[in-house]
Design a binder for these strands. Structure first.
Length: 400
RNA sequence: GGGCGUGUACCGAAGUGGUCAAACGGGUCAGACUGUAAAUCUGAUGGCUCUGCCUUCGAAGGUUCGAAUCCUUCCGCGCCCA
C-alpha cells in the first residue's frame, strides 16, 4: 500500500473536523496493514429524498480514500430509520415517508454513490438497516432505550435547544441516535463517517459497541458544506443543494450553480470537494475570483461527469452570459399561431402564469430570436422555429 | 381533564370592522452593472380577457351596507397544570 500511517492521517485531516480518536484510528490502521484485513468504514444514508448532494460527497470522499487504501465502505441505507425521521440539525420534526417512497429513493442511491465510491464488492457493501431493525421486538427496543438516560440524549445540541425553546420534540426522535448506534454494532463498523452534525449519533455507536464487548468504532466527522445560499448547511430539504447527478450545464446545471455560489464559499468548496493543493487555489481565488470559480466548476464536472461535459458547460456559460444562445434547449410545438407571448412562456415552463409573463415582457426581459419584445399584447405568427428567451438563462425553441 | 396561546400569501411575520390582494424581512424572478449567474443597486412577486374584474387571510356558518378583523361551531398546532 505504501503510504505511511502518518501520511494517511495527514490526508484524512484535510476533511476532518474531528477524529475520535486518532490513537484508535492509528491502531486500527496498523493492525489492518499487518493482518491484511480491511477496515469497515460505515456511513449512513437517510433515503428521505432521492438526491445525493455535494454535502454527502464530503464524507464520501474520505471514504474513497479509505477504499483506495484497501478498506471497505459499508453504506447503510436507513430504510427503517427513515420511518423514524432523523432530526439532526433541524428545529422541527422531520416528515416520515411512506415505505414505497423510501424504497424508491433508496434504489437510486447506489448508482449515485458510484460517482464517488468504488462499487466493486471488494470495496463496497450496501446494507439496509431494516435487515436487523425490523427483527427487533418491543422488548428489544425497550432494552435499547434503557441503555441511555434522558440527560444523555439531551446532551445533543439540537435536542437541548428545541427542548429549552419549547419547540416540539417527539419521543420517537430521541430514539433515532440509538438506532443509528445499533447499526454500528450490527455491522461491526471500524470507522463511522458523517458530517459534524452526526457527531452525537456516531458516538452512540462507539459506546454501544463497547458495551457489547466489541471494539469501538472511530468517529470521523467532516465540516458541513454550506449550500448555494451561502448561509446554511447544504441540505435537500432546504433546496440549497447541488446534487451529484445534476446535469453539467443548463440553467439548473452544476456549472451555473457553482458560478452562483457566493465567492466566499470557494475556499471551502475547493478544500472539501477537490484534491487541489491549498496554495494553488488560494492564490487563484485571491487574484481572480471569477476564474477561480470557473476552475472549480470545471473540476467538479470533470469529477462527477467528464472532461468533455466540463468544457461544453464552460463554453455554453460564456456564450449565454454574453448574450448568446445555447445549442440545446427544450423544444415545443405550438402551431403557427397567432399567439400571444405570455401563454407561450407558460407553456415553455418559463413562468407560472400569464400575468408573470406579461410582467417580464414589461420589464424588458423577453426576447424572440435575440430581439427584445416590448408589447405584451402583440400576436405572433410563426412560419419557422424561433428561440424564445427569458433573461439570459432560460431558453425554449418554439416550432410552428 | 383544566388553563393559556396560536393558525395570514413560497417561508417568517404585521394587520383586531371600510383607505387590504393585505405592511415588513427572507426567498425567488427580472433589470442595471460585472469577462462570475459573486457583490452592489433597482424593480417585480394571488389569478385574469389588466387603469378594471375575480378568488384569497385554517374550515363551515352567521352578524353587518361592508369582515383577515366581530359571533358560533368545527379542525389543526404549541406550551403549562393534572
Amino acid at each position: 500500500m505504501g503510504i505511511s500511517i502518518d501520511e494517511q492521517i495527514r490526508i484524512l485531516s484535510r476533511r476532518s473536523e474531528r477524529i475520535l480518536n486518532e490513537d484508535d484510528l492509528r491502531k486500527k490502521l496498523a493492525r489492518s496493514e499487518k493482518t491484511g484485513k480491511p477496515l469497515r468504514i460505515k456511513m449512513g444514508m437517510d433515503p428521505t429524498a432521492p438526491d445525493v448532494t455535494l454535502g454527502h460527497a464530503v464524507p464520501m470522499k474520505v471514504i474513497r480514500e479509505f477504499q483506495d487504501w484497501g478498506h471497505k465502505a459499508v453504506i447503510i441505507i436507513g430504510d427503517y430509520t427513515a420511518r423514524v425521521g432523523d432530526p439532526s440539525g433541524r428545529n422541527e420534526t422531520r416528515p416520515v415517508l411512506s415505505g414505497e417512497e423510501i424504497d424508491r429513493n433508496a434504489k437510486t442511491y447506489v448508482a449515485q454513490v458510484g460517482k464517488i465510491l468504488r462499487t466493486d464488492p471488494e470495496h463496497l457493501e450496501v446494507r439496509y438497516n431494516g435487515e436487523w431493525l425490523a427483527k427487533m421486538n418491543l422488548v428489544d427496543i425497550i432494552r435499547l432505550t434503557g441503555r441511555m438516560t434522558l440527560a444523555q440524549v439531551l446532551q445533543r445540541d439540537d435536542f437541548a435547544k428545541r427542548f429549552s425553546e419549547q419547540v416540539e420534540l417527539r419521543l420517537h426522535e430521541l430514539i433515532y441516535p440509538l438506532l443509528q448506534g445499533w447499526d454500528s454494532v450490527m455491522i461491526d463498523a471500524d470507522v463511522e463517517m458523517g458530517g459534524s452534525d452526526q457527531l452525537f449519533n456516531n458516538l452512540v455507536g462507539r459506546e454501544f459497541q463497547k458495551e457489547e464487548g466489541k471494539e469501538s468504532q472511530v468517529v470521523i466527522v467532516t465540516p458541513l458544506l454550506v449550500g448555494t445560499d451561502g448561509a446554511i448547511k447544504m441540505s435537500k430539504s432546504k433546496g440549497n443543494y447541488i446534487a451529484v447527478t445534476d446535469p453539467a450545464s443548463g440553467p439548473k446545471g452544476m456549472f451555473g450553480k457553482i458560478m452562483s455560489l457566493p465567492d466566499h464559499l470557494m475556499e471551502s468548496y475547493y478544500t472539501l470537494l477537490t484534491d487541489l493543493p491549498a496554495e494553488e487555489f488560494r492564490s487563484l481565488i485571491q487574484s481572480n475570483p471569477r476564474d477561480a470559480k470557473v476552475r472549480l466548476a470545471k473540476v467538479m464536472i470533470m469529477w462527477l461527469h467528464d472532461a468533455a461535459s466540463a468544457a461544453a458547460a464552460e463554453s455554453e456559460f460564456v456564450r449565454t452570459t454574453h448574450g448568446g444562445v445555447p445549442d440545446e434547449m427544450p423544444e415545443f410545438s405550438i402551431g403557427s399561431g397567432p399567439h400571444k407571448l405570455a401563454p407561450l412562456m407558460v407553456k415553455a415552463g418559463m413562468v407560472t402564469s400569464n400575468g408573470e409573463g406579461i410582467r417580464k415582457i414589461k420589464e424588458g426581459a423577453v426576447k424572440i430570436d435575440q430581439q427584445k419584445v416590448t408589447d405584451f399584447q402583440k400576436e405572433y405568427t410563426f412560419d419557422k422555429p424561433v428561440v424564445l428567451q427569458l433573461g439570459n438563462r432560460k431558453f425554449a425553441r418554439l416550432k410552428p
